[in-house]
Amino acid sequence: MRGRRAAGWAAGLAIVLSAATLRAETVAQRYPALASKLQCTCGCATPMPQECETMKCSTRKAIDADIVWVETGPMRNDRMAVKLQYFEQKYGSRILMAPPTSGFGMVVWIMPWVAAGLGLWLVFFSIRYWRKRALPAPAATSTGEASAAAAPPAGDEAALEQVRAEMDRELRGF
């Protein structure tokens, strides 16, 4: 009977200890996950997991404490977006390592790719336009660039060989 009771206590203790360990691990794991999405707002813009050495920084400790509070307090089970919203409301959007991917924040992410798409279209349009305009091997450009004029007609292997031979002959004279 006594042995059973002792075993029960031991099992209970083990469960409590495991739960405590699990909880500690969860907080330890959660901290970097949240902190890596935040940056110091003192002006250095250093990610929270790193030290801010730029100047006397009074904000980092407060943010650090807030991260621990969020991960251990009533918000611990909330979605990451909700947690980030809390920090954004308290410290402003400067605290976020990356702009939000919703609302007007989405625009910042989209625009570079829109510009890339337009640029790509412009490049292909230019290539197509120029190819349509292309004349069959102009004799010499008005830029007077000897090198361009000296280039053989595209794909003309015979002319290429001729140029190579001529070049070799002249190089012998060096």
Binding site: G92, R94, G105
Partner: peptide, 10 residues
Amino acid sequence: GQKIDVGRVF
């Protein structure tokens, strides 16, 4: 009317 800052992640 609200500033959205852009960090190095972007």
